[in-house]
Amino acid sequence: MGTILLCEDSLEGIFTGIYKAYERKENHTECKLQAGEIENYQLFAEYVRVQREEELAKKVSRTICRDLGMEAYLCICQAIATEDKNKADAVYHTVVEGINCFKQSTISKNSSCSTFQFYGIMGNLTNPYVQKVFELSRSAGNEIMRMKEILRFRELENGILFAKIGPKCNVLSFIAPHFADRLPLENFVIYDHLRHLFVVHPAKQDWFIVTGEHFDKEITERFSEKEKEYEALFTHFCHTIAIRERKNLNLQRQMLPLRFRDYMVEF
């Protein structure tokens, strides 16, 4: 009979879950970690709810960074940003595998985990959990990159740059540093309207994340005078820059799926 740990669907929640799983000192193959709510109730499993605890989560994240390396840590964080139902379990068992390999590699240089010494745990693509984390992080990575491409700021009457996005996974904390680095002197806000999350960046200060469904939508629809002019200029630019003799709308669609265009001023 296995144990299913239920944790909150967040980085801290899942990391706390991993801590608790280790604390139980059970065989890891008998234990599953599930983020969010129970989907299919399993009759012969023991369910244990885990409350998120910042301190424990921090410990786990430090361990991952130290023993599995930064590349693996980034993959894991990206995997957790997806909406996949089994992500928590994949991450948990990847961490277990990673820590085992780390221990073995410190004992013997010729262990079966020799990939680990060269590439870290994410090189171990024949392990199904690692493979799952790899795939998830790849799909989150795609979405993160897409948002850096297609996000469009619009200048509001009050001078704030405002962007609305609707990504497939929770990308905000991955894209915020990118924009904060590029636009240090701007006041900007990025709004994920599917999750009701905001990144707020006041000029020359650090960014932070705010949650909430209620905000003054009207302000975000009042644009500065220059805004319309620049949108028109860019839209026009996108048309003139195309070579008529090479027109290919199918390809344009392939490169830029339609779902993104609602957010782009030039379409």
């Binding site: 850096k148 491409e149 590029r182 701007e186 027109k247 390809l251």
Partner: peptide, 26 residues
Amino acid sequence: KGDGTGIGNTVSAGICHSFATDGRCI
């Protein structure tokens, strides 16, 4: 990276922001 005094940075892989009707990246 940006140095915090102005605007902009660069990313070594490059970023395509849009695609024109000929399918080429902008």
